[in-house]
Design a protein around this nucleic acid. Structure first.
Lengths: 154, 154
DNA sequence: AGCGATTAAATTGTGCACAATGTAAAAGAT
DNA sequence: ATCTTTTACATTGTGCACAATTTAATCGCT
């Protein structure tokens, strides 16, 4: 009811640093949630979740990786990856094997079925880009900025 | 086979639509996770999680809202909000009351303590913006694009 | 060789995010 | 007025994300 404490008398609009509409963080949070929902529709027929799909992207690029290498690529720790990788193993897409040379390590390898899944996923990015309803140029610029944001000074 | 216009530096390589580095979705996912981590450091002393903070932003802007109104503002359903709001109630920041006029509805009201929390949070956005290490202009443009992405054709 | 420090992954516990379902109240239809 | 439909929220179950801790293996140092 009362005007903002720091508002000069009846100024047009005192800037509110906590207004939801001003938060980059909320825009980022809401956009990420929405895009994950878009992917869910595409991935559900394949029986994959979004983080599982990202994990497969990493392995399709280079197979036979350590848990830590996958985690490095995705910025995820073993607390997230271990159960996820166990589910991918149960689904028959990867195999987890203790490294004989260093028993602390666990190697992640794609099965034939895991490699075959790639063909079923190859059209997904284009379909999602289409659903986003923004010009390609904007999406490319956006990805650039977000990558900087994600990798900066960690 | 044709080299993508947006990847001039590796024009020799065939474009891989599933390469992790090409995924806007991954950039978005990683950026969102990183920003939430930045907030976690700021919010931990206040005893708040990031979605709880977003919920308070909504209520600080306008108090005495229905669960559904909060959910509308944040694009979250009751499955997420009900337990979150119960935790905010346990923390003494909000009160949940059944609407007497319509018993289906639950009104969310800030407590004195909930309103007081605002003063402790008011500096957070500026500190985060600083930590992001990108020029303000870029951040403003980014928020604009993300908002479009989040709200488009849902 | 012996041993503390480091490393790799797993485990435990909390809190989202969401699909699916349930419950009860209110609104509409006949 | 009774019955169907819709609405608002709660509940259940799955799967992340991450902090904190644990376990076990390897490394580094003397």
């Amino acid at each position: 009811m009362t005007p903002e404490p720091d508002a000069p008398e009846n100024a047009a609009k005192p800037f509110d640093p906590l207004a939801l509409d001003h938060q980059l963080c909320f825009a980022l949070y809401a956009a990420a949630n929405r895009v994950i929902r878009l992917y869910r529709d595409q991935l559900e027929p394949l029986g994959l979740t979004y983080p599982q799909y990202l994990t497969l992207l990493v392995l399709w690029e280079r197979d036979d990786r350590l848990v830590g290498e996958v985690g490095e690529a995705l910025s995820l720790d073993s607390g997230t990856l271990t159960p996820l990788l166990k589910r991918l193993e149960t689904a028959g897409l990867v195999i987890r094997t203790r490294d004989a040379a260093d028993e602390r390590r666990v190697r992640i390898t794609l099965t034939k079925q895991g490699r075959a899944m790639r063909a079923k996923a190859v059209d997904i990015p284009a379909r999602i880009a289409c659903e986003m309803g923004l010009p390609l140029e904007t999406l490319v610029q956006l990805k650039q900025t977000l990558t900087t944001l994600a990798t900066d000074q960690d």
